[in-house]
């Protein structure tokens, strides 16, 4: 029993560790989609990029206008004030509205905002999350940077409030399962990695079979986790030619485990592994059709003995 539970846990950890996949995201078509959540580092990078880009644009604009000399000094001042205001909340709202949840920084980093209810991203959601960005990110950042650290005149109460505030907004998204900051919670939004679809060749078709024969008992040992690990090894280009020795190790380990004579592997372990992959997949998939999903070699999802 104890062994059983332990293998359950490892199976869960395995699936969680590979990618931070968003769970229970079900579009109107009722088929769950596995988006990958954007890391907080990527999001921080995107906002820093946005800050740099927008302030650089303002600088260029001001320099250009001043150089052309088309505006009087006071109007120039008004231009600075208005553009400084515009690159705050309005810039983030407009860019996320126009580019469907992406600012320039997010486009560069390759992340985007989606609605957590799996419908189209609404305008009020974009406004809400960016209004709160001010108290969650810009204001604490500004206060921390402008804080007069040498002066004792500023009371310790203000310092304490700032500390608690900064810690709260920093820790909230870290502790959050879906990495939502407060603005995301109010708006009902999530930040995800922009998906890229690449279809790799079907391994089961790619090579000629080498005349290996496996019997049923040999194919009943491994589960889909081991199958997909083998798939990853076979697909990894660094292992296909360079690490023939490692492939041989894998082939020998499998042969030992399933009682297949080691000398029958032959000169090319890759051929053996390909053949085994195909046979194993066929066996597991045909059992899947009968409703029997075998997770791994521990049979952790098999009905538990009473």
């Amino acid at each position: 029993m104890r062994f059983q539970r332990k293998s359950d846990e490892t199976a869960v950890q395995r699936s969680a560790a590979s990618k931070r996949v968003l769970e229970n995201f079900v579009p109107p078509e009722d088929v769950p989609i596995g988006f990958e959540l954007a890391s907080l580092g990527a999001r921080f990078g995107a906002v820093i990029l946005d800050l740099i880009l927008t302030w650089f644009a303002i600088l260029l604009l001001i320099l250009a206008v001043a150089w052309l000399g088309i505006l009087p000094k006071t109007a120039l001042f008004a231009l600075v004030v208005i553009s400084a205001f515009f690159v705050g909340v309005p810039y983030y709202v407009l860019s996320e509205l126009i580019w469907n949840g992406r600012t320039l920084g997010k486009r560069i980093v390759g992340i985007m905002v989606i609605s957590a209810d799996s419908r189209a991203l609404g305008a009020h959601q974009v406004v809400a999350r960016n209004l709160l960005k001010d108290v969650e990110f810009f204001a604490p950042l500004g206060l921390v940077l402008q804080w007069n650290y040498t002066s004792t005149a500023q009371s310790w109460i203000a310092a304490l409030i700032l500390l608690v505030w900064t810690l709260f907004v920093a820790i909230y998204p870290i502790r959050n399962k879906r990495k939502q900051r407060l603005g995301d919670v109010v708006a009902g939004t999530l930040v995800i990695v922009k998906p890229k679809a690449i279809l790799l060749d079907d391994l089961a078709l790619s090579e000629a079979r080498g005349g290996f024969v496996f019997d049923q008992t040999q194919l009943d040992i491994y589960g889909s986790y081991e199958l997909q690990t083998l798939e990853a090894i076979l697909r990894d280009p660094s292992k296909s030619q360079l690490h023939a020795a490692e492939l041989e190790k894998v082939a020998k380990a499998i042969a030992r485990r399933i009682n297949y004579p080691e000398h029958a592997i032959g000169a090319d372990p890759r051929l053996f592994l390909m053949a085994f992959y195909r046979e194993q997949r066929e066996r597991l998939e045909s059992r899947l059709l009968f409703g029997e999903r075998r997770q791994d070699k521990f049979h952790s999802d098999a009905p538990k003995p009473k």
Binding site: P27, A120, A197
Partner: peptide
Amino acid sequence: ISLDLALLNYLDQLCARAWLVVYVP
């Protein structure tokens, strides 16, 4: 029906991309 990880990942990502295009405001 399939245990081909490459296929599952591809379809997942393809559907995600299509969803993003279909469900725009």
